[in-house]
């Protein structure tokens, strides 16, 4: 079994201000294993940021436990907690680089009181600048860098103490899509090459889809769904999870098209509009051409969206079927046998 890096047990967090109290986390039981890229997704206000801050003790849970490599950090004193924090890197949405320090100064900051000599610090900083692909920026100030470069510096700074785990709090939410991809690619590379465990807090399902192996969906302080990304994406159990997944797929567009009675999906008598969702690896089989040949059913692909997730295809097609009614039904039965989920959207 994989080694556990962080585990929470019945963790709850209540903020009290005078007489008002606000329950942010209710009863969180999570386990993050070594080498995982673990996504925690939720809308703003779901408690994601508080949750991740409980992992490194910036927030103290009101009740329950947080274990880091088996040690309950809730019971630690300030000095012990600081030692643990050096093993937990963290990056932020707003990067939080020190504006008055150069890139070098920023990355070296966590080493300032580590007892390392100047040449050792210099060597370590240069190693990290290579790692995040910014070798020539050490003397720049943060204000001179682009958003993506700032986040790279922040990643380098977070890794300078060789942490076990990297917490990313909406790390790509302030970046444009292209830069987001490059940062996610970097995180993936760090996970692969250094064996770094990564926790990704986000409200963007596309981020989870891009890099995570496991996912937990947080809603109003509760983990409502959890599992490996492929399983959750292919068969989500909760409505919220489904709505998050829809944001990453264009298949949901068909509902809008139907509402607006778009000509491209207007049906002739006898035609059938269906949504085919792939839930296993059947996408590699030539299903559409097979049903055309075997059942003489014409399949007009209106649109499709198939993504690669954890090395498996996931997604589906919206198709207009036309042909003899019994033949169409046979074709649909065949598809169901092949583990394609069929949803009939409209009859002609």
């Amino acid at each position: 079994m994989a080694k556990e890096v962080i585990r929470t047990e019945r963790m709850a967090k209540v903020f009290t201000d005078g007489k008002q109290s606000n329950t942010v986390l209710k009863n969180v039981n999570l386990s993050i294993n070594e080498g995982d890229i673990f996504g925690i997704i939720g809308y703003s206000g779901a408690g994601k940021s508080t949750l991740v801050r409980c992992f490194n003790g910036i927030e103290k849970p009101t009740s329950g436990h947080v274990f880091f490599e088996g040690r309950d950090i809730v019971s630690l004193n300030a000095r012990e907690l600081r030692a643990i924090r050096r093993k937990i890197g963290m990056i932020f949405q707003q990067f939080n680089l020190m504006p008055s320090r150069t890139v070098f100064g920023n990355i070296a900051l966590p080493l300032k009181h580590s007892g390392l000599s100047k040449p050792e610090i210099k060597r370590r900083v240069h190693e990290l600048l290579e790692l995040v692909a910014l070798p020539d920026k050490e003397n720049d100030y943060p204000a001179q860098l682009s958003g993506g470069q700032k986040q790279r510096v922040a990643i380098a700074r977070a890794l300078v103490n060789r942490p076990k785990i990297l917490l990313c709090d909406e790390a790509t939410s302030a970046l444009d899509p292209k830069t987001t991809r490059s940062i996610l690619y970097l995180l993936k590379k760090l996970n692969r090459e250094l064996g770094l465990t990564i926790v990704v807090i986000t409200h963007e399902m596309s981020v989870v889809r891009e890099i995570c192996q496991k996912i937990a969906v947080l809603d109003k302080g509760d983990i409502i769904e959890e599992g490996d990304v492929y399983t959750v994406f292919s068969s989500p159990k909760k409505e919220l999870t489904r709505s998050f997944i829809e944001t990453t797929s264009s298949l949901g567009n068909v509902t809008q098209l139907m509402d607006s009675d778009a000509p491209m999906i207007r049906l002739q008598p006898g035609q059938l509009l269906i949504k085919m969702s792939y839930v296993t690896n059947s996408v590699s089989e030539p299903l559409i051409s097979y049903i055309s040949r075997a059942y003489q059913v014409d399949a007009n692909i209106v649109f499709g969206d198939i993504q690669i997730l954890s090395d498996h295809p996931l997604g589906g097609l919206v198709v207009i079927l036309s042909g003899e009614k019994s033949r169409i039904n046979q074709a649909i039965d065949y598809l169901k046998q092949k583990h394609v989920a069929i949803e009939v959207l409209n009859h002609g």
């Binding site: 924090r85 050096r86 963290m90 939080n96 966590p110 300032k112």
Partner: peptide, 24 residues
């Protein structure tokens, strides 16, 4: 946010006062 990142990197309150509050 700068103070928080100082806490997250394991700096002590005195180090945060000197390295972050006063410096920045």
């Amino acid at each position: 946010g700068l103070v928080e990142s100082g806490t997250a990197m394991g700096l002590s309150p005195v180090q945060i006062i000197f390295s972050i509050y006063l410096k920045e």
